[in-house]
Simulated scan of single mutants.
Amino acid sequence: MVSLRDPPKKHSVMIAGHATSISLEPIFWDALQVAARAEALPLSALVARIDAERIEADDPPNLASAIRVWLFARALKP
C-alpha cells in the first residue's frame, strides 16, 4: 500500500536516446505504469510523449511536474 509519507523515488528513463533521472512519489510511478499499460506503450515512450508535450509550453515546467499534471488531467477525463 502506498503511503502519503513515501518520499519521492528516483528512476532513470531513456528519452531520445539518453537517460533522464526523474524523481516522483511512488503513487505517481504506479499511476504512470498503469497509464503506460493502458496505452500499450513502454513507460519510456509515454514519458517521452509527455516530455514532448511539456517542451511545447511557453514556460515549460520540469518533467516531474509535467508528469504529475498529465496524470491528474488523465484521471479527470470521463
Score class of each variant (00 low, 15 high):
Glu25Ala: 11
Trp70Pro: 02
Trp70His: 11
Ala48Glu: 11
Ala31Glu: 04
Ser21Pro: 10
Leu41Met: 15
Pro42Val: 00
Ala38Lys: 12
Trp70Asn: 04
Ala73His: 05
Ser23Ala: 15
Pro26Thr: 11
Glu53Ala: 15
Ala45Pro: 00
Pro42Leu: 13
Ala35Cys: 07
Pro42Gly: 14
Ile22Asp: 06
Leu24Phe: 11
His18Cys: 04
Ala48Thr: 08
Trp70Tyr: 09
Gln33Tyr: 06
Leu71Asn: 05
Pro61Thr: 09
Ile27Trp: 12
Val69Glu: 05
Arg37Trp: 14
Asp30Leu: 13
Leu41Gly: 00
Val47Cys: 09
Asp59Val: 06
Glu39Ser: 13
Ser44Asp: 11
Leu32Val: 00
Ala52Ser: 15
Leu41Thr: 02
Leu43Lys: 10
Glu53Trp: 14
Asp59Trp: 09
Ala57Met: 15
Leu71Glu: 03
Ala52Tyr: 13
Ile22Gln: 08
Ile50Val: 09
Asp58Gly: 14
Arg49Glu: 10
Ala64Trp: 03
Ala48Trp: 09
Asp58Ala: 15
Thr20Lys: 10
Arg54Phe: 08
Trp70Gln: 03
Ala45Ser: 07
Val34Pro: 08
Ser44Lys: 12
Asn62Asp: 06
Leu43Asn: 11
Gly17Trp: 08
Ala48Leu: 08
Ala75Met: 10
Ile55Tyr: 12
Ala48Asn: 03
Leu63Lys: 03
Pro61Met: 12
Ala64Arg: 02
Ala36His: 03
Ala73Leu: 13
Pro26Phe: 08
Pro42Glu: 14
Gly17Ala: 05
Glu39Met: 07
Thr20Ile: 08
Glu56Cys: 09
Ser65Val: 00
Glu53His: 14
Thr20Gly: 05
Trp29Cys: 09
Ile27Met: 14
Asp58Pro: 04
Val34Arg: 15
Leu41Arg: 14
Asp30Pro: 01
Thr20Val: 07
Ala48Ser: 11
Ala35Ser: 10
Leu46Asp: 04
Ala48Val: 04
Leu24Gln: 11
Ala64Thr: 02
Asn62Val: 05
Ala45Gln: 06
Ile55Gly: 00
Asp51Cys: 03
Ala73Cys: 06
Arg37Met: 11
Ala45Arg: 04
Leu76Lys: 04
Leu76Val: 08
Asp30Ala: 13
Asp58Tyr: 00
Leu46Met: 09
Arg68Phe: 01
Ile27Gln: 10
Ala16Gly: 08
Pro26Ala: 11
Val47Asp: 09
Leu71Cys: 04
Ala64Lys: 05
Asp51Tyr: 07
Leu43Cys: 13
Glu39Val: 04
Asp51Asn: 06
Ala35Arg: 01
Ala73Thr: 14
Trp29Leu: 13
Asp30Tyr: 15
Asp59Lys: 12
Leu63Asp: 03
Arg37Tyr: 12
Val69Ser: 01
Phe28His: 12
Glu56Ile: 10
Glu53Arg: 14
Glu53Gly: 12
Ala19Gln: 12
Asp30Trp: 15
Glu25Phe: 07
